[in-house]
């Protein structure tokens, strides 16, 4: 199975470990990833508000790059996923917009026809790898590891569009955790927001909001949290000392990127998956890691 792979900005900077873990896990699962090196940022939430034309140009270009390889697109960031989904929807519903974007892309011999399939790594695991094959690949079941799934916003909402259901009914992360041998916990923060998108100018919102979610995960008995989004990870992990200060309570909650959790169950070591690059130490996970690391170290 081959995908055009779009890591986004975060997985190439603050969360570089996510990119590394994705490549390792993909090769274990037999996914062939063609990384789109020449792809730009999707514009986060900022560009779409202040410069819609620029937003559509950048995102349609990413879809066109995937199309030039003749491959479906795989993302690993929630916000990037929604941006390309939104741009694709606008492109196919507005012929004028489509023509003007394609005219701008023609300068570098790119063209989008509107046919690139967009999928997030979480959906690829369920849809393209599948429960059965995943089970077969689990050599190190993470038996008894209690995890709190933190979905974030942009692969579960807006409701009613792109096949999204009521976000609060999502089970994709919990079902995946079960396949890996974990015990997913129930808690109030599952499909809540991390506040990343206002953190650049006022991080108090992210700290206050997400502190409550981490606290709820801890109260619910989670040993670790897992998220499919590097932006959520940045808040959950990097801002945790500030959250602890804000609520005057220790949290010590390790936060894993989705491919890191999968990787542990596939027998990769925490070092290979660069879990030590996180702010919150994840030593507690060592006892769940495979005793003899296998793979590409």
């Amino acid at each position: 199975m081959k995908f055009a792979y779009y890591p986004g900005c975060s997985a190439r900077s603050t969360c570089a470990e996510l990119n590394d873990a994705t490549h390792l896990v993909a090769s274990k699962l037999g996914l062939d990833l063609v990384q789109l090196e020449m792809a730009t940022c999707t514009g986060a939430r900022e560009l779409r508000a202040i410069d819609p034309a620029g937003f559509y140009a950048l995102n349609v270009r990413i879809l066109a790059l995937a199309e030039s390889h003749g491959l479906p697109l795989m993302t690993i960031c929630n916000t990037c996923t929604l941006n390309v989904l939104d741009a694709h929807a606008a492109f196919v519903s507005d012929p004028e917009l489509a023509a003007s974007v394609n005219a701008r892309l023609a300068e570098e011999n790119l063209h989008y026809s509107g046919r690139t399939k967009i999928s997030h790594f979480l959906w690829v695991l369920h849809e393209d790898i599948g429960k059965q094959r995943l089970r077969e690949q689990v050599v190190n079941p993470l038996s008894g590891l209690t995890v709190a799934a933190f979905y974030g916003c942009h692969i579960t909402r807006p409701p009613g569009r792109y096949g999204f259901v009521d976000s609060r009914n999502n089970r994709a992360l919990e079902l995946l955790a079960e396949i890996l041998g974990c015990l997913p916990i129930e808690y109030s923060g599952r499909t809540e927001c991390c506040g990343f998108h206002t953190a650049a100018h006022d991080e108090r919102v992210a700290i206050k909001m997400t502190g409550q979610h981490v606290l709820a995960a801890k109260a619910g008995g989670a040993t670790a949290m897992v998220t499919p989004c590097p932006l959520c990870h940045t808040v959950l992990d990097s801002f945790q000392p500030e959250m602890e200060k804000d609520i005057d309570q220790k949290l010590d909650m390790p936060v894993l990127h989705l491919p890191q959790l999968v990787g542990l169950a596939l027998g990769l070591s925490p070092e290979q998956l660069k879990i030590d690059r996180h702010m919150v130490p994840a030593g507690v996970l060592d006892s769940y890691a495979a005793t003899a690391p296998t793979g590409l170290k």
Partner: peptide, 29 residues
């Protein structure tokens, strides 16, 4: 069939739809 804002067709999802996992168990209708 999925419907996007402009009622334009988007690719038909495969048999397992990661975005809808949980919908049935949670009686989301």
């Amino acid at each position: 069939t999925l419907v996007s804002p402009g009622d334009a067709p988007v690719p038909v999802p495969p048999s397992v739809d990661g975005r809808r996992l949980g919908q049935a168990e949670q009686h989301d209708a």
